[in-house]
Design a protein around this nucleic acid. Structure first.
Lengths: 207, 207
DNA sequence: ATGCTTATAGTGGTCTGACCACCCTTAACC
DNA sequence: GGTTAAGGGTGGTCAGACCACTATAAGCAT
């Protein structure tokens, strides 16, 4: 019947919070350097192992990047390696692969619609250039095509979700479609036919 | 000019891979127990601290759950605490909150459409019960309502993405809408009016 | 036999100290 | 001046020691 505060928060959780605080109050940007592990341990009054547990978790989440012999840095984006490793944990059954592809298609469809008002002559020309380029592999061309579209949705979070899932997906399967599809989508932009976007993507799903 | 294999993979990365292997080959299910840290250390020929770094990373990702004095278990879902902590890292600006809400709305709209063919008399009755229940808080009612819908999309991944973002969102803002909205959506199910779902959600976005 | 209490072993949680491998800077050398 | 060597700082890893907590089993009283 103790009245004691639970307060059982693990040290590494606290460290995580402190590091975030440090990043915010010092206004650290991607690429900036964090204090060394030993320094953090002393400053936060914790063992170095606890600091490391927090740091490794952040690393796997793609929030930081550690360079042996140099230090720990705030990273801009999730590293590819991490995504691949994560995907191997999550993408185990065949069912989930189907779901992943379906989900990606949904996101791309909505992006195509969200960006509709921001795609005109200039953008259409850029999109055409992307799909006619023979430089890239099909998956990369698909990524470049939709990256361009997502950038015009004005929704960075939406874009990040898509990108994350896309990177998951290509570790296990192909995502690109027939080149006709891209051309048809572009054609809809040319004709300013918003409502047919839905239909175009639906046809893809039934394939 | 050494020919030596780089092989600079960190131990905790290897541990991660080994653990995944262990889970797969033993066909462990959510709720099952993992070997103890000391046992893993011996089995994988690694220090306990390296094991813990891998485990903590997995924990923050919501893949496992550790219970002090008991052991480590495969977890079914991400723990709430972790989501809250993660969100504090990611959701820093106001802009991203707007984007989050928009993205959630998109996911919910698509779920409402995906589940369309699986929602009839029985399901409609259940949905009505959920929104008339006064037991829950608005955010919980919203979650229950759409959880029910997402469960009928047959896309577990899609559901998980939504749930994750939803848990992010409610740590910083309200997500529920006016109760009229839910009733209108239900009405569309009653009238078997698929095409108006899109319109209904669009109206929500303009609000 | 049944139920309760209490020891005990096993588990995660944390810290310390010690090395190693690596990177960069600086000082010494040629 | 250019090259090389040494040192200090950093992450990477390990071993061992405690502590806190939980479940189980042993012992006790009823």
């Amino acid at each position: 019947m103790a009245v004691s505060m639970p307060s059982k928060q693990k040290v590494y959780h606290g460290v995580l919070t402190e590091i975030r605080h440090f990043i915010n109050s010092n206004n650290l940007q991607p690429g900036d350097k964090l204090p060394s592990e030993r320094e953090l341990a002393e400053k936060l009054q914790a063992g170095r192992s606890s600091i490391r547990e927090a740091l490794r978790a952040m690393e796997l989440l793609g929030l930081i990047e550690t360079r042996h012999g140099e230090g720990t840095y705030l990273s801009a984006y999730r590293s590819y390696q991490t995504v691949e490793l994560l995907s191997s944990f999550i993408l185990q059954g065949d069912q989930i692969k189907v779901e992943l592809l379906l989900t990606i298609r949904i996101l791309e469809k909505e992006a195509a619609k969200l960006a509709f008002d921001r795609i005109h002559e200039t953008e259409i020309k850029a999109l055409k250039t992307i799909i006619t380029s023979d430089e890239r592999k099909p998956n990369d061309r698909h990524a470049a095509f939709f990256s361009y579209i997502f950038e015009r949705t004005d929704n960075l979070l939406f874009t990040k979700v898509w990108r994350l899932m896309y990177e998951f997906a290509i570790t296990v399967e192909d995502v690109y479609t027939s080149s006709i599809f891209y051309q048809e989508l572009i054609q809809l932009y040319v004709e300013r036919d918003f409502n047919s976007i839905e239909t175009l993507f639906d046809a893809l799903a039934d394939k």
